[in-house]
């Protein structure tokens, strides 16, 4: 700066300390600019919820009828059993697969709209030259959308968990199964949050919506596989035992997840995670997902701040 530089002068209407534009103003801004996306997401979730409610009532009814069917070896009970195994399970399994994709789709659909859309259409030149400043603008939008999306996803996953309850113990499914674990408790909401944060971050990196969406789906897939195949086994909740009786018998909703077996001398050892460790595992996984989401959000703000051209 040259010698002509004068000390900073405040704006003509404000006092010496220029008060920032209040945070609550961003609520309307975020709602107005993202209501299309939010309403679409809410509408899709609501429609699927209606389906889950109707289908869930039938599944629960079929399940109760099957359990109470006497005598169990009668033809009528066999028919009920076959109907549950085929029609109900096929539907349940299909919904489960879709449910596993849902956080990625929600994140890819919502995340890139925050920044990639502004950068792609050039409207960031408007948004980032307003009095509120680009950092406040970004933090407010990310936070508001993340909170709304996480709440929606959390509520939705509770309904799905109820829908899926009759299938637990079925085909080796229980609450610790890789594809079931992330659809229940608080995990589904946490995965959705991470997918949104990744979508926003990748949107800022790629600066275009479609590539950001693709990158979000890819990143989500990688992260899920990492959790399924590597991380979850190492959450510090596993137990070791020599009591093989724990693992005998059929798959039930309470069957533990056996991580590995090994032999010392004549003794067989099992390392396993009992179903009772469901909630500790949920908190561990949701915890690191939350930290990751915060890191991605901070990274996004950092990219917005330093964007130079």
């Amino acid at each position: 700066m040259s010698g002509l530089t004068r000390p900073a002068q405040p704006g003509r209407d404000a006092g010496p300390a220029l008060r920032p534009v209040p945070w609550p103003r961003m609520i309307w801004v975020t709602w107005r600019q993202h209501r299309g996306v939010l309403v679409s997401v809410a509408a899709v979730l609501a429609a699927v919820s209606v389906f889950l409610l109707v289908a869930g009532l039938k599944v629960h009814h079929d399940d109760t009828a099957l359990i109470n069917c006497h005598p169990a070896n009668s033809q009528a009970c066999a028919a009920r059993n076959s109907s549950f195994n085929n029609a109900d399970w096929t539907m349940g399994n299909t919904v489960l697969i879709l449910m596993n994709l849902a956080p990625a789709l929600l994140g890819a659909f919502t995340g890139p709209t925050v920044l990639a859309r502004e950068l792609e259409t050039g409207t960031f030149r408007y948004a980032w030259t307003q009095g509120i400043g680009r950092v406040r603008w970004t933090i407010a939008k990310l936070t508001l959308l993340a909170v709304v999306l996480t709440i929606l996803a959390g509520a939705f996953s509770q309904l799905f968990a109820w829908f899926f309850d009759p299938f637990l113990g079925f085909e080796g499914m229980n609450v610790l199964a890789a594809t079931v674990f992330d659809t229940r408790g608080i995990d589904f909401a946490a995965w959705t949050l991470v997918a949104f944060a990744a979508g926003a971050f990748l949107g800022m990196l790629t600066r275009r919506i479609i590539p950001a969406m693709a990158a979000t789906l890819g990143a989500y897939l990688g992260l899920t596989l990492l959790a399924w195949l590597v991380l979850r086994e190492d959450y510090p909740v596993a137990l070791d035992t020599t009591n093989g009786n724990l693992f005998s018998g059929q798959n039930t909703p309470n069957s533990p997840w056996i991580l590995k077996t090994w032999t010392v001398g004549n003794t067989d050892w099992w390392r396993f995670i009992p179903v009772s460790r469901f909630w500790p595992m949920q908190f561990i996984e949701s915890g690191w997902l939350l930290l990751l989401a915060i890191a991605l959000g901070a990274g996004t703000v950092w990219l917005v701040r330093r964007r130079a051209a």
């Binding site: 700066m1 530089t5 004068r6 900073a8 002068q9 704006g11 409207t123 030259t129 009095g131």
Partner: peptide
């Protein structure tokens, strides 16, 4: 604006910019 740092709150407050191609949300 007489020595204000660019992107400071005061500068953002007192400068309005109309960009070349996409000045409004369509």
């Amino acid at each position: 604006l007489g020595g204000q740092v660019i992107r400071s709150p005061a500068a953002l407050n007192d400068i309005a910019f109309m960009a070349q191609d996409a000045p409004v949300y369509k």
